[in-house]
Amino acid sequence: MLRILQFLYSLRSFLLFVLLEVVAVWMIVSNNSPQGAAFFNSSTALTGSVLKTQSDVVDFFTLAEANKELTEQNAALLEKLTRINPASDSVTFELDSAFEASFKFKSARVISQTLRFAQNHITLNKGEKDGIKPGMGIFNQDGVVGRVKTVSKNYSVGISLLNTGLLISSKIKSNDVFGSVNWDGKNPDEAKLLYVPRHVKASVGDTIITSGFNSIFPSGIQIGTIKEINPGKEQNYLDILIALSADFSRINYVYLVENTQIGELDSLYQQAEIRNEY
């Protein structure tokens, strides 16, 4: 017995090493699942406030540009608004509840993000206190950015679209064919559109938008445009490369969207025994 203990004692540093590596790997694995509850990350109070201060300083230098983008988008929205609100003399209909707006929008600022890993995340300056919930979609004026993963009191961490673990239900705008957008971990300007059958006729330059099927994003938010189409290695699907429309190297202000009926949908799916895969 004593011998065994002595033997173990002589190996103590190796055992400690193995133990710590196991802890680290466990953390990596539990942090990697897109829905997993992450513990330490950049949404904790300490890291969040440090990153926010940094971003406050850096943002100061890009204020002019951010302002320009916001005014441009305001103008676009105003134009849309005039189209939706017709002149007061026309007949108005009561909307059926099916057409009621089931999406709520919020805005936030990105205080930290990574670009160069295979699993990238973004940290936002709003949290539980401001009504941010895990599962909300994140996008900006150019296109889809990601999805909220965890929320603390004042901050939240989202999985970036540049994360090999995130699939976004999408469709080709011109012919309504569905697929899933997934990043392949290589170039931060490009992603793949998966599960598009071979018989589909798609052409380079077609726009990819969200399908609205996974009830995270409303349908019609832009994701990117088709850059290359190849017959895939797999028998059944095309290998489509898309150029992402959001420029991830300079994301500043983002919008968050929440589906207010997601609870109802989820319980419906559960009754129907469909697993809602994000």
Partner: peptide
């Protein structure tokens, strides 16, 4: 470092 990189455990390992 991991806490700030959001790469939980990779730097540590």
């Amino acid at each position: 470092i991991d806490m700030f990189y959001d790469t939980m455990g990779i730097h540590a390992a």
